[in-house]
Amino acid sequence: MDSDPVVIPALGEPELSLATRIRAGDGSAENELVNTYRRGVFLIASARTRDREAARDLTQEVFIAVLKALRDGQLREPNKLAAFIQGTARNLINNYIRTRARRSECDLDSVEVPSPDPVMELESAERQRLVGQELATFSAADQQILLLSLVDGHSLAEVAQRLKLSHDAVRARKSRMIKKIMKKFGALVTETKSRTT
């Protein structure tokens, strides 16, 4: 697989202990890092690739690369662990998008990455189902607004023009729907996060 070299940012002071522990071979520190950043990395990967399976694979690849780099002491700026992880993720995701590779050719033998949390997977699927049910209760016009803005990427002005509604009306309706969904599923997401971390 053709891939760009992974740029590893320096490790920052706040994460020094975690990075140091990982460099010292502390397995629990590696688990802690993965649990802390896994959800964010997965979200970035799924947002960029729009493919949950690929995002799951990429998340593993990102943490393999990060852990390898941390073990090798490649972090030069200790206060930028998040930026280091994001940079690693960005490069791998860009590589994936460029080559459409489904799996990394990285040697996994030397690094053990925790498998995806089955509870998180189950709850994610359940959330997806519930969100679908909730969306189905919206009017066709409201669903159209969400589709045009969230999927097609149209601006509110464009959505308003297409649906022959006022800009303010589209904004208000969309905001109301998002707020309603967030209110209903925010708690579920928070609960999921607290369980996974």
């Binding site: 949950r52 998040a82 969306l135």
Partner: peptide, 29 residues
């Protein structure tokens, strides 16, 4: 934003819900 996202649970939560919404919309587009 991605660096912020890695450490902001609120944004992660919102992104997760909006992604779920988006996926459902894509399926039923």
């Amino acid at each position: 934003f991605e660096i912020h996202l890695l450490e902001c649970s609120l944004c992660q939560q919102t992104l997760e819900v909006l992604q779920a919404v988006r996926e459902d919309l894509v399926q039923r587009a």
